[in-house]
Design a protein around this nucleic acid. Sequence first.
DNA 1: ACCTGAACACCGTTCAAGT
DNA 2: ACCTGAACACCGTTCAAGT
Lengths: 211, 211
Amino acid sequence: MARTEALSRERIVGAAVELLDTAGENGLTFRALSTHLKTGAGAIYHHVANKDELLVAATDGVLARAMASDEAGGSPEDAIRALALAVFDAIDAHPWIGTQLTRTGSQPAMLRLFERVGGHLRALGVPAGTQFGAASALLLYISGVAAQNAAMARDAEPGLDRRAFLESISTTPDPAAFPFLHAMSTQLRDHDDRTQFLTGIDLILAGVAAA
Amino acid sequence: MARTEALSRERIVGAAVELLDTAGENGLTFRALSTHLKTGAGAIYHHVANKDELLVAATDGVLARAMASDEAGGSPEDAIRALALAVFDAIDAHPWIGTQLTRTGSQPAMLRLFERVGGHLRALGVPAGTQFGAASALLLYISGVAAQNAAMARDAEPGLDRRAFLESISTTPDPAAFPFLHAMSTQLRDHDDRTQFLTGIDLILAGVAAA
DNA sequence: ACCTGAACACCGTTCAAGT
DNA sequence: ACCTGAACACCGTTCAAGT
């Protein structure tokens, strides 16, 4: 019989991740968390300063694990693509990360990402004067995708068909006033988020190469 | 003497924008809003379904105004830059928009932006097969910047010097483990957000041109 | 030192009662 | 039809009291 383990920062953060994954961003409350941990609400404050710190720790932990696998071999461009996809997949698995990533509290995670991207850009031979701009653009693009995906996971009413939803987006507005949107309706309906995400990364990399 | 105007959706949304601008994202509560409008909290619900709808309406209104000025003349690329900067400046003036833009509720605003960007890409002669990817990338990049800027405005403790803050970011982590970050510290400290934002737009446009 | 859980100061939202 | 404002069902966080 597993005795109840002692409360610890690690166990709290782990339980928080579990709650966020299963119950969503609104599912993480100190009441739910303390019930889950079979303790009082106030006990948590002995190990974590407040909810923000808890969210930062949860985000940092998941993201650090996602970025851990370092593929040796392959071009620097491939390494950037693999890194970006690792972040994408982590957000896909834990959509709440997308919301957290665009908060100043998640600086540590963003700085690690910036560092890794920058290292690959250097290996790519990008001139010193362009490195900062290129790394920033890639990072901002990645956070944009993160935020959007988190929004979809958070706000989508359950049971909504993705295809039908995307189709309704492109067909609801007046086609005469939205000709471009209308022309893109098929692609919008059929597109794959992950592939599309990579297209943007490739465009930025192509722009960097052209400069 | 201005008599107290009747309550209306317009007045409510206007007051909400004012509160968001002056008191920040947390400043908008139905209690503060009803005090501001000299009415009861429940009265607002006769004109707006809930807080989410109020935020969407506020975001949509401000952004529609920002995107209204259409510069004729100039290249399609310049038009895209002008459009992107208009959104950037609107977010700069009303940081809470950045948070709202990455919520599914703000679809109308995003669709308008998508349409406008797409129209310019067509005028630019971008081949049909590339248009969707290019428009998506630009939109995702813009929302990334939006989310980041909103985070900075929301989370930055007041009275914090921007330069000092940016410098601390690049110097706090171990330089040996973060060589790229360390090499970029000067640029990070001195960079201008608006210029940097435009650099990313230009990189994507260059990537589109190269394809 | 750590835990408990009631209490505090807030929220968004509802609804009987008024005009 | 619109407004009022107390009440409800929640939050995050604190803190006296326990072990």
